[in-house]
Design a protein around this nucleic acid. Structure first.
Lengths: 136, 136
DNA sequence: TTTCTAATTAATAATGATTACGATTTACAT
DNA sequence: ATGTAAATCGTAATCATTATTAATTAGAAA
């Protein structure tokens, strides 16, 4: 997702345009890795020394709830990255060295069929972990 | 996994038999839900008021490393349950109300084929979340 | 059975991530 | 230009988890 699209979504939902918000978004646009709140803060405090945890976490929560960012938990910490462009449902290979992802256009739910009758299925998670060709 | 099997594994690896360890194991044998460290502590402090966090976490780590317990992260907290009896690789539906699981004898990795050439695959996670027939 | 030693535990403090709060500042509609 | 709700700052609080040190205990060896 690009910056413009993210701002369109924010504006549509009545959120104001601020420089902090913009820098957080720019950071995600320019970095395809999964980042933690601390990663963000460290980078951003170079430009905005007064950036606070509250601002970071509040905006991350906003972005996730609006579908601008996606979130996953890696080794006990919450990680965030820009929502993928591709509109078709997919899953991710995640490189545990560099944090970059590769889309996997396959969903195990398609193959589940009637394996869980009478169960209400709300959500699912499928992720593959390892090392990408560059890091191997 | 039953209590005897768990102790066999512990003894084989040189771990001593203690009442605290035994109670933690008994708790998991008698509860098929995913439990947090705090869940454990709350229950156990009724019988062993002096049970400490250290003991809980240290033993949980031991049990996981020996394959006695399995672990997953649910809504930001580590959860544990007894390792399944079934020896074949499988995944889990997890009820977000009661915490009970249902085994799903399907692995998406089987269907991945050569979708990720040149990638080193170390691990994967596939979980389905929702509500079980009893909780629905 | 007694003794010895390393493993285990208790009690508590420290850490690290995340959330909350009151005061201040800012975006933007009027 | 002004008013107001939203956003941010600075900091403190909270929550899960890990570390520390001293005391206790299991199990081996005498």
């Amino acid at each position: 997702m690009n910056l413009q699209k993210a701002w369109d979504i924010l504006k549509d939902n009545g959120f104001k345009e601020t420089s902090k918000r913009n820098q957080i978004l720019e950071l995600f646009v320019n970095d395809e890795r999964y980042l933690t709140a601390r990663d963000l803060l460290d980078v951003m405090q170079k430009d905005y020394p007064s950036m606070s945890y509250d601002t970071v976490y509040r905006n991350l929560a906003t972005f996730v709830s609006l579908g601008i960012l996606e979130e996953t938990e890696l080794s006990g910490e919450r990680h965030f990255r820009m929502q993928c462009e591709s509109d078709s449902h997919h899953h991710h290979f995640i490189c545990m060295d560099c944090g970059k992802i590769k889309e996997v256009p396959l969903c195990p739910m398609d193959l589940l069929g009637a394996a869980l009758p009478a169960y209400e299925i709300d959500n699912h998670k499928f992720e593959i972990y390892g090392r990408c060709p560059e890091c191997k």
